[in-house]
């Protein structure tokens, strides 16, 4: 199962190492991870996309993360109403003839060209992972020279639908 997990953590040195080290030690497969500051000074937020085999392993992952002293809160937000975005920079082989053609491809994705050189151009796209991947697939035939992705970052929407029979992973609360 592919799950989106967020963790709020104390912004202390070594915290990223603690968390990734833990996931590695317990053999969890991280697809992407993004980290950044939040509205509160001393607190950062991490978003992981992980591939876990089953619910039992997922529960372990959440509990083990929770056990870290610098980790304040862990949520599996996969099944909630969320906004989730990632950003990709894609450097594509191109010349002046192709530029318009590529422009036409990226427009429906609301992506933009942010750098141009004689034999390449760089596209910036933001969105959900499947959208980003769809665009990458469309650009691949032109020749991708370089690709960089931030990994997903996400949080809950302001409004959550009422029916929330989500599995609960904390026996404490």
């Amino acid at each position: 199962m592919r799950r989106v997990i967020t963790a709020t953590v104390q912004n202390r040195s070594g915290v990223l190492n603690r968390v990734t080290g833990l996931l590695h030690k317990r053999q969890f497969n991280i697809e992407s991870i993004s980290v950044g500051r939040t509205e509160t000074d001393s607190i950062s937020k991490m978003t992981f996309v992980v591939e876990v085999p089953d619910h039992q392993k997922l529960e372990q992952l959440v509990k083990q993360l929770n056990k870290q002293i610098d980790v304040l809160k862990v949520s599996d937000i996969t099944d909630k109403a969320i906004v989730a975005r990632e950003l990709a920079l894609i450097k594509v082989v191109s010349n002046s003839q192709l530029r318009n053609e590529i422009q036409g491809i990226i427009e429906p994705f609301r992506a933009s060209i942010i750098d141009v050189s004689r034999d390449s151009l760089t596209v910036q796209v933001t969105g959900k992972t499947d959208k980003v991947e769809a665009l990458i697939d469309l650009l691949r035939p032109y020749g991708i020279k370089e690709l960089a992705r931030t990994g997903l970052t996400a949080f809950l929407r302001g409004h959550q639908p009422q029916v929330t029979d989500l599995p609960s992973y904390s026996i404490l609360k």
Partner: peptide, 8 residues
């Protein structure tokens, strides 16, 4: 006392 041990 350790929730992570339960069901592990």
């Amino acid at each position: 006392i350790d929730p992570a041990e339960i069901g592990k």
